[in-house]
């Protein structure tokens, strides 16, 4: 039943056309676009010593997590509530919580597909080494998913409908990208902005991903803040979530 539900949600996800493109192809396009810039495959001072493809690969993963967590997740769930999909399910023997679980399973899977795609594409096309501290890298992705999806669930909990969910998501989305160092690499930010950005959900995720990719020890404080975001947001969403 959960498998069937998740599979159908996957089908619906692919039928949105624009979302799979955004989630899987946009990061790839960024990697290709910036990776082939002249001199990109040399370690860049401005990117904290990373090559452009390695930097872009991590950035692409961060972007995928943010799009899934702050845009698609809240808009879909708030839309399901608005349309009465959750309510209808509440009249069947299956609790609507399963729909939420199916959604999360799907998006976590999509996130990992994107991660794999970025690692493989960077490796094959640019010879970028796979993340050096691999377990730490995976752990970071998991924590980043927890933090960003958690916040998305809070948005889904408070937004009355799909439009509002999308709007609130967007209000969080663009500042997240800015503070997280997607528009300008954090190395080129003023130090005050960087200090803030490093502790935003996306900023912390991106920084720890890049650290572990390069083989540096991830900052414990950043891992802790990601876990804190995940737990706090998860609990808040659980408290506030309305099924109808």
């Amino acid at each position: 039943m959960l498998a069937k539900l998740t599979y159908l949600e996957l089908k619906l996800f692919t039928r949105e056309i624009i979302t799979p493109v955004l989630v899987l192809l946009l990061p790839l396009a960024l990697l290709l676009g910036f990776g082939y810039l002249p001199g990109g495959n040399k370690a860049q001072q401005a990117l904290g010593g990373q090559t452009t493809p390695e930097y872009m690969a991590a950035l692409g993963v961060g972007l995928t997590l943010t799009v899934l967590g702050l845009s698609i997740l809240p808009a879909t769930l708030a839309g399901y509530r608005e349309k009465g999909v959750l309510r209808r399910m509440a009249t069947t023997p299956v609790r609507p919580a399963y729909l939420l679980i199916a959604q999360l399973l799907l998006y976590v899977a999509a996130a990992f597909v994107s991660v794999a795609l970025m690692i493989i594409a960077a490796r094959v096309l640019f010879g970028t080494p796979v993340p050096e501290r691999f377990p730490a890298f995976v752990g970071t992705v998991v924590l980043g998913i927890g933090a960003l999806f958690g916040i998305g669930l809070v948005v889904a909990a408070v937004a009355p409908g799909a439009k509002a969910g999308n709007l609130i998501g967007m209000v969080l989305f663009f500042p997240s990208l800015f503070l997280g160092g997607v528009y300008i690499p954090r190395e080129q930010m003023p130090s005050a902005l960087r200090a803030v950005g490093d502790y935003t959900p996306l900023g912390a995720t991106l920084k720890t991903m890049r650290d572990s990719w390069m083989g540096a020890e991830p900052h414990l404080a950043q891992l802790a803040i990601m876990a804190a975001y995940a737990v706090a947001a998860g609990l808040t969403a659980a408290r506030l979530f309305r099924w109808e």
Partner: peptide, 11 residues
């Protein structure tokens, strides 16, 4: 149960 104004996902 058939609920008043309960839809399905459009796609």
């Amino acid at each position: 149960v058939q609920l008043q104004a309960s839809e399905l996902p459009d796609k």
